[in-house]
Design a binder for these strands. Sequence first.
DNA 1: ATTTAATGTGTAAAATACACACATTCTTAA
DNA 2: TTAAGAATGTGTGTATTTTACACATTAAAT
Lengths: 246, 246
Amino acid sequence: MITITNGKQLRQGKTLQTIQSEVAETNRLALSVDCVIFGFDENKLKVLLIRSDLKKYEGRYSLLGDLVYPAEDLDAAAYRILKQRTGLNDLYLEQVQTFGAVDRHPAGRVVTVAYCSLVNVQHHKLKILENELHWHDVKSAVDFAFDHKEILDACYERLQKRIQEHPLGFNLLPKKFSLRELQNLYEAILDVKMDRRNFRKKFFSMDFLTDTNEMEQDVPHRPGKLYKFNYEKYEKKKKKWFGIDF
Amino acid sequence: MITITNGKQLRQGKTLQTIQSEVAETNRLALSVDCVIFGFDENKLKVLLIRSDLKKYEGRYSLLGDLVYPAEDLDAAAYRILKQRTGLNDLYLEQVQTFGAVDRHPAGRVVTVAYCSLVNVQHHKLKILENELHWHDVKSAVDFAFDHKEILDACYERLQKRIQEHPLGFNLLPKKFSLRELQNLYEAILDVKMDRRNFRKKFFSMDFLTDTNEMEQDVPHRPGKLYKFNYEKYEKKKKKWFGIDF
DNA sequence: ATTTAATGTGTAAAATACACACATTCTTAA
DNA sequence: TTAAGAATGTGTGTATTTTACACATTAAAT
């Protein structure tokens, strides 16, 4: 998505006028990157959206995006947007799909490369947010600008697939988490109910959870153990699981 | 890839000069589509490449690509290239990844959307080919122009994954094929050996192979039965197998 | 102290994946 | 014509993975 809504707020974002000038001349096109930033909060999968205050798109929501700079790689543009909007570095990021329908953007031909990224909402909340940024339920979000619903759907489907093949979920959780939180995450993303015992068995058998010897605090029931994800163990084992190339 | 090599041969391809003019001005970029066209022949996975006759890239091979027209959708551009280069319509086509490194193209900023497509080589051979188009072994192909080796690798890995989830392989075979041919295809793409009995069992249990009541002809051994892929049966069943969305 | 609500654990059945051998059919060469 | 060679075609038992399922334990709240 192009940050057409708040040129004043962003130091680096381009305004609608800039985009129009980029694409106005014959045969010109603009290239943008849109980030689908997923979070997990209140046992629901969330996505970070910005509300357009431009009259034309009043009340509609957009993904976070920007034009790609002339001398900037695609991934670099995506990381720049993430840093700019969440204040966080080193987030999980994956290119998903490029959307280039001729009429997808009213300002002219704007081709956008969609990225899926994962953040720990609690971590993010500590940062000072721009006013118009909010977390929305992925399943119930409506009123998108442009083709951003389609982009969100593509990234959500990719996430559903990926999380069944790789342990991505940890990017959405605090460093220390209970198995219940982990299961809630999987159930929310995949929209299924899982058997608690089998879920625990599966994750323990994968053997990349480390017991922190700490317990949950301030929960209104018996506290569960807290675990953390052990990247070293995972790195050693993933080749075996995922065969060919991962 | 941009068809910089043979502007005279192509009715629709753009010449190097065209590309340079597209990207020469400040902040301009060009958008292209590159098709990784896979085939299967002599029990090996092949890819259709064009040899550059431009001095700068002498002896190097490129994927088939072209600039996207100003009023052309990305998929449409990919289909156009396939039609142009193979003479065939309705090929399997899937967008894989977009490559946009700043320096990936010597003519300036050219962002390319990579597509993976599958053709029946026998079918394709019936068409009159352009001189400089040839099928190459995927595993042993070297000397690529630009970042086309990287693009090929990305599409090959995607194909390896996809073929384990969906019955794509039929796009690479004649309408009627023996189980041995089908197994050879899987073994070639996945680079593994499979047990013949278990392979047969698995495909028969999927129940979308229809017996044609015909046998192989002109093989130097006992002929095998010929089957065809039953799309109707597949469509009815795939939801059950692939769960959420496929 | 009692109730409540979630954590933590094991086992049996079912489904799936894997390993494996021999008879059959057709071609080819003696 | 016959024998040898080479690939097709088929079934079963074993190992592994997935699924279903119930009860005792712990801490918080009343």
